[in-house]
């Protein structure tokens, strides 16, 4: 319903595809909502160049299978400046390679609405997001001055240059997402399922050593552990959890008994209090 509203109300929509499970659900819904036609919008992936290798392989295979054209955007200025999560810290790195890259891509293609897979249950400031969330011409979010959303009526009227972020999964919980993945048999990146992987314990997180760009600090040791990921982002910033769950139903079982929040292993949320809210005001999803 929401995806169709996006397509109908805007001139140039784009679906933000992050390769994660929420994106997978979003894409699946989009394929259904417009069947037998293909989704009437572009699909964009902001590639920080630090994603897990398995994610990229999965992405390319899926797009080929569905016959969709994917736009891949990387902030080349950031790459040339040598911005990496190791050298510049997670806050600065996220700002340049994710937030700035995203804004750059949206402006470059003139997208007037970007569809994202964010859910309100993920983080406190996301709980206040609208389904249609208005952004100024500078991509800024004004949390105190949001359009009220009544019933199912979504107001997508904007002036040239302004844009909207649309969140069709707003009212889904993490468990809803997994239940839907199970019911619809949606393919996922294997990293979501437990397997033996090389990890390093760093700042309380289990970081997977995905390529040789990661250098070990003194005293750090690479160990093989049974791990999986609850969310997927850039490998140096996304911690694994120890788990034996290797199928969707085992994951659902594990989630029902879990005591840690989903984003607990995401470094960028913990930079400082209210950190997600600040990032969102600046244009992060």
């Amino acid at each position: 319903m929401i995806l169709r509203e996006v397509a109908a109300q805007f001139d140039n929509p784009v679906l933000m595809y992050s390769i994660g499970k929420d994106s997978a659900v979003l894409l699946h819904l989009a394929m259904k909502a417009f069947a037998p036609a293909k989704p009437p919008f572009a699909i964009l992936h902001v590639d920080t160049t630090w994603k897990f290798r398995e994610m990229i392989a999965f992405r390319d295979a899926l797009m080929a299978e569905l016959g969709l054209d994917l736009i891949v955007h990387t902030n080349m200025a950031g790459v040339e400046a040598g911005i990496t999560p190791f050298s510049h810290g997670s806050a600065r790195y996220t700002d340049v390679m994710k937030t700035a890259a995203l804004k750059e891509a949206l402006s470059l293609h003139g997208f007037d609405v970007a569809i994202g897979g964010a859910r309100r249950d993920e983080e406190a400031s996301r709980a206040k997001e609208r389904i249609f969330s208005f952004r100024s011409a500078n991509h800024r979010w004004d949390a105190k001055n949001q359009r009220p959303e009544l019933w199912n009526l979504l107001n997508g009227r904007i002036n040239p240059g302004e844009s909207v972020r649309a969140f069709p999964l707003s009212n889904w919980t993490e468990l809803d997402v997994w239940t839907y993945i199970e019911a619809e048999n949606i393919p996922l990146v294997p990293l979501y399922f437990a397997a033996k992987r090389p990890v390093v314990k760093r700042d309380g997180m289990l970081v997977m050593v995905d390529d040789d760009r990661m250098t070990l600090a003194e005293g750090e040791q690479v160990e093989e552990r049974m791990v999986r990921f609850r969310t997927l982002g850039c490998y140096p910033l996304t911690g694994a959890i120890e788990s034996e769950a290797s199928t969707v139903s085992e994951i659902i079982e594990e989630l029902t008994h879990s005591n840690l929040s989903e984003r607990a292993n995401r470094a960028i949320d913990h930079d400082e209090a209210g950190s997600m809210e600040k990032k969102k005001q600046e244009g992060y999803f």
Binding site: A124, S125, K144, G274, E277
Partner: peptide
């Protein structure tokens, strides 16, 4: 647990 935004905190 529920007051999400910095301003209101």
């Amino acid at each position: 647990l529920v007051d999400g935004l910095m301003a209101e905190r």
